[in-house]
Design a protein around this nucleic acid. Structure first.
Lengths: 330, 330
DNA sequence: TACCCAGGTACAGGTAAAAAG
DNA sequence: TCTTTTTACCTGTACCTGGGT
């Protein structure tokens, strides 16, 4: 393991001071063109790379953005990390993804900013972590009011309303709703909108037809199995796609045809390289590219321009994707 | 954004030198119990966290392991990152996942070690990156001979032989092989074993019945569609599961029943939260928990014990999972 | 006086080793 | 010997000084 070459080595090789090397490589203008050329050449041929630790220590920033995920596995089948990474990279930042059990890194002045994705801690716990980290932060599924936090969330409302309207175009009138735990932002915000819509438009309170399937497919499958066998419902509003998948499985087991015998809608347009909704699921697409861009922009604004430190919430417009999982009458 | 509290602040509050604070918090024994107690209490109540940059700069290590992935999406669809993360965390290291375009971090003395997962660069390019980084490295799909590299790879040979033997138990004798590009370690090593087996056991050279579907499902689907329509083959040896999925799709489009009309085997036991092989695919399971443990152990040995710097390759035993995707005769 | 270019120095926040009480 | 402090150091960057034109 040969010693890493540092700025002192380059200075010696170029017969200049370390300050001049630093100035030359950082593009400062108090260096003659000739000297700069020479230094750059020497640095390159010796594969010199400044130490992040030294740089970070001196400048107090690292150009590193941390993305905290609950665990690496379960996190996404979506492209979100990839999209955010691309946006940040374009702006000169690097994204690093860390899991739950590496929270210590958040308080170690390693990152310039923080993105929290799908983190299933309670809002309270999450806010403790963020406050301790003192980092400018973007939350992707929250309505936190912390001052250094921007919430960039999918605009649940408009899609839920569109999905609700399908109820008026089908003869499947026995509707139920599959939700997540009580502290889930997306579950709450979607459910509330469904609730208000059905109450106002149809004088119907959906509360007693709401079931918590934890945003996961297996609990949804079991629940749907029971409910379908009892013939209690024929329209399943699932507040995310995973649960819709559970309903698909249950239907298959009971030889029911989705879009014919029962209707199902999801949310999130969760895609997987393997796999698939057959027939195509009607769901809401969160517009990942735009979402990613808004996240990056908001976060970098916070980092580079402390003026904007007030809390805010940004809504990412999304769009309903029509499949054939709902039985429409004409 | 309040100033982060540093070791000097704690020293002042505790009326001791910074060295004593450092010693107390790091568990060094040259500090009295009373002083240590007091310092720990003060540090905790002020949420003091040492700066990684300063620590890393001084000690020349960070307890950070970088995992380089081609893109985030395909890593997170398996349990491997999560498994490795758990192992490393137990040993006092943190895993951070970075993508392709953050390679600059590898040369910045940020990581103590490097894990490369499924990185589709040529062996040559990969070795350049690793050499430049000067980091102890574990490769998960390679037979690189670099001195600071350990290859921890799935033991393709034993599984391939077991899968080959299915040929003798079926009446689907028209076999073909779906591979990846020429520089893929797993594709090559699996194919070579198939090739040798069929040549030795059946005096049959599989070369002209080999097709590159790039380890992806879509090319495999298209290829299979053509081959099935031509009725050229009825047994598809896919060198990974993605391509097997493509064959499943093609079969469904042509109303062929897997395990009945045609036989398919895969490799890797790729699981997805959504989705699924119907009927169950016969494939090889890589034993992720063991694989993860071997990776962590090997890497940490390299980092902490420079004595072991010679190159080596470790094989992770795996196991064939029998599904019903092969039509067996009794 | 002004600018150009280079070097000296303090410093970021810790830790290891030597010195001292 | 036991504690604690002093000093040097890790590797860069920001700022200031100063000679030359």
């Amino acid at each position: 393991m040969s010693k890493t070459v540092n700025i002192t080595d380059i200075a010696r090789l170029a017969n200049v001071s370390v300050a001049t090397v630093s100035n030359a490589l950082k593009g400062k203008k108090n260096v003659s063109a000739a000297t700069r050329e020479r230094i750059i050449k020497i640095a390159a041929s010796n594969h010199y790379q400044p130490s992040m630790a030294a740089q970070g220590l001196r400048t107090q920033h690292t150009k590193l953005i941390g993305m905290l995920v609950h665990d690496f596995q379960n996190v996404f089948s979506s492209t979100i990390a990839e999209d955010i990474n691309r946006e940040l990279h374009q702006r000169g930042y690097s994204l690093v993804v860390i899991a739950n059990n590496s929270k210590r890194l958040l308080n170690a002045s390693l990152f310039d900013g923080l993105i929290v994705f799908n983190y299933p801690a309670s809002k309270q716990q999450l806010e403790t972590i963020i406050t301790a980290s003192k980092l400018p932060t973007v939350l992707m599924a929250s309505d936190s009011q912390l001052p250094n936090v921007v919430n960039v969330v999918t605009d649940n409302r408009s899609s839920v309303i569109q999905l609700s309207q399908l109820y008026e175009q089908t003869d499947h009138k026995k509707v139920c709703f599959f939700t997540n735990d009580a502290d889930s932002y997306n579950s709450n915000s979607r459910w509330q909108t469904y609730h208000d819509y059905f109450l106002n438009k149809h004088q119907y309170d959906i509360t007693s037809d709401t079931y918590n399937a934890h945003f996961r497919s297996e609990p949804a499958r079991e629940l749907a199995l029971k409910l379908l066998q009892a013939q209690k419902y024929n329209f399943f509003y699932c507040l995310n796609d995973m649960m819709a998948y559970g309903v698909y499985q249950a239907a298959e087991e009971l030889n029911l045809t989705i879009g014919q015998d029962i209707s199902v809608v999801g949310f999130d347009n969760t895609q997987s390289h393997l796999a698939i909704f057959q027939p195509k699921l009607t769901t809401a697409d969160p517009n990942m590219p735009l979402w990613s861009k808004m996240i990056s922009d908001q976060l970098i604004d916070r980092i580079e321009n402390q003026a904007l430190m007030s809390n805010r919430t940004e809504y990412v417009p999304n769009q309903v994707i029509s499949g054939s999982s709902v039985h429409l009458i004409d």
